[in-house]
């Protein structure tokens, strides 16, 4: 699987190259700046790009802007964005083209090597991966609080894991319940929140995140 990495800190960049190589990824480019990043991505068309949000030259959000620009040129180009902080606003912008194959994770998660590699694969395969922190911010503050209050505590837990982009099997695994129970909970949630029923993990995540973000 061909990967492009953009990260300005040498330590992290080398670490990620080594780690992904160890897991049979083929790192075809590792860049340190946001300059021309979008063009590089569009030209190389990797199977997945792992980008830091904050890159030179301005150290603001060039990673995100490069990702959005590259996906305009190559629709649904899989992109995983890493950041020291997660911002729901950025998550919304990443998801707004509705094409999927995006991930948005805290940099801390790189430390959980197994989960991180799984997330990279999931994005490469067209899935959506959201950091639990984004989901927590959306569940905690947003104005949907009154509707969310109609959910049972268990349903809220399922909703949170679902919004991270996990499959039914993964949700069942995480919450230690059966897959059948998970799909029952999900049906209840979608009905209570007036969202379209869907078995497709990815469509479902988009619907839930869009719901939480508005």
């Amino acid at each position: 699987m061909r990967v492009v990495i953009a990260e300005d800190l040498v330590l992290l960049r080398d670490g990620m190259v080594r780690m992904l190589s160890a897991y049979q990824f083929d790192v075809i480019a590792a860049v340190e700046s946001g300059d021309g990043l979008a063009e590089t991505l569009a030209a190389l068309r990797p199977d997945v790009a792992v980008l830091d949000v904050r890159l030179p030259p301005t150290f603001t959000d060039e990673g995100l802007r490069a990702a959005i620009a590259a996906r305009r040129a190559v629709p649904a180009l899989p992109v995983l964005i890493l950041s020291q902080y997660v911002e729901p606003v950025y998550a919304k912008e990443l998801l707004s083209d509705g094409a999927g194959a995006v991930g948005y994770l805290l940099k801390d998660r790189v430390g959980e090597v197994g989960d991180f590699v799984k997330a990279v694969r999931q994005v490469a395969e067209g899935g959506t991966v959201m950091d639990p922190d984004v989901v927590a911010q959306l569940l905690g503050g947003g104005r949907r609080r009154s509707q969310l209050a109609t959910l049972t505590p268990r349903e809220r837990e399922v909703l949170a894991v679902m919004a991270e982009g996990r499959s039914n099997a993964a949700i069942a695994d995480r919450l230690v319940i059966t897959e059948k129970a998970v799909s029952k909970h999900i049906n209840n949630i979608l009905t209570k929140l007036d969202l379209p029923p869907s078995d497709d993990d990815h469509r479902r995540v988009l619907a839930v995140l869009a719901y939480l973000g508005t």
């Binding site: 949000v53 904050r54 603001t60 959000d61 020291q84 902080y85 911002e87 729901p88 606003v89 919304k92 911010q137 503050g141 947003g142 104005r143 609080r145 973000g213």
Partner: peptide
């Protein structure tokens, strides 16, 4: 706030609006 650093006041206000329980 990182949003303020990245996008200035407009971006930070967008984030504030998104996190608010009152529209």
């Amino acid at each position: 706030p990182p949003m303020l650093a990245d996008r200035g006041l407009p971006g930070a206000m967008q984030a504030l609006a998104m996190a608010s329980s009152i529209p």
